[in-house]
Design a protein around this nucleic acid. Sequence first.
DNA 1: CCACGTTTGAAACAGATGTTTATAATCAGG
DNA 2: CCTGATTATAAACATCTGTTTCAAACGTGG
Lengths: 220, 220
Amino acid sequence: MAQPDTVTRILDTAEVLFAERGFAETSLRTITSKAKVNLAAVNYHFGSKKSLIQAVFARYLDPFTERFHRALDELEHAYGGKVIPLEVLLETMARTVLEVPAERNSLKVFMKLLGLAYSQAQGHLRRYIQEEYGSVFTRFTELVRQATPELPDHERFWRLHFMLGTVIFTLSGLDALRDIAEKDYGEHVTVRDLIRRLRPVVVSAMQAPLPEPALQAGQA
Amino acid sequence: MAQPDTVTRILDTAEVLFAERGFAETSLRTITSKAKVNLAAVNYHFGSKKSLIQAVFARYLDPFTERFHRALDELEHAYGGKVIPLEVLLETMARTVLEVPAERNSLKVFMKLLGLAYSQAQGHLRRYIQEEYGSVFTRFTELVRQATPELPDHERFWRLHFMLGTVIFTLSGLDALRDIAEKDYGEHVTVRDLIRRLRPVVVSAMQAPLPEPALQAGQA
DNA sequence: CCACGTTTGAAACAGATGTTTATAATCAGG
DNA sequence: CCTGATTATAAACATCTGTTTCAAACGTGG
């Protein structure tokens, strides 16, 4: 649709700045000057700042959803109608998340962007992501449902979001946490390290005992 | 420091708007017009927008840290040097978090603000919170350390942050999730509901088996 | 080599932002 | 009641924002 050079430079610069400072806090002038590109280039190639933001996400989410669908295809074929264990499903998702930005070593950026999509974007972004990429998530949750038949539907819904929060929060705040961890435990933590640590936690969390039933209304 | 009326009206309005749209996305003009207060009042009473943001946080965190310290005092006294069980510690923290904004029914706002503090404010806010309120968290983690002696220090460090992520992410994104949950499961979820659901998940997560040791470098 | 669609470039636009200023109102204490 | 400090108001300030405009440069097919 355009010379790859300018467009790519804008995207590369924008995703880093967005991840570092958020959307509203990153001006087009900051992006274009750092990318050594004319200010008008953003509006020319993307139309608006909103569309730039969506394009930044699309560059991660398009390959992700494609790979994830493929991975789930293979999994369903391999298990031939039998239930896919929860660990395998989680493992597959983790692997796919790791694969996509691996080429550019931008997993951290990817995670920060996902975090921002939840916490910042009030309107257009969340809607865009939901409409554009909601189907993979639906497919995944259905497989999780089959893998955890003992969980009531709404309990599983919430637990999945609990774990989504765990992962996104941790990986998107990684830099700040890493500094503390490094200072206190003298250990440099990689993303792969964290995912290794996350796995047993997530699995145990999903298999936690059911909560005690809610108390009826009327208590302070 | 000033007439309570104007200052309070500004704080009340600002915290809601910040929670809804973030800091950069909320202008002083939006705040002052909604609060029916002159634009200059913010700079007069608080000095700057940054200080307004910190004041909004202080109004929650000051009572929180005070209550939490008191609660930990009581706990340590009650257990008289013996180890306080993990469930009790988590329960106490949850109860304190619930108590603080209870008077104004603003728990949702409180949680959203905490989420924003992590995801948005790159600079001043995180530093402010760390310096002003870091000591309670240190005290709490030390008690958690005694309650979970089987966990290596760095593993506990990360798991605590995992769980922090779970809670903040869920409760701060509650509105969006609630809409989905309500539509799909016809159930209106309260914050107390969520905390009830969170408890067994958090406890199980903290007690999950240790991760398998890291593979040595050299694999793709 | 020329002409035409595509891409860049510098400048200007209209509007919003946080902050400051100078003046008016308010309210207490002598 | 008058005085003096505190608080409120309206206007202006300088700066920054996303977006447009229009002319120049570019590259490519005829």
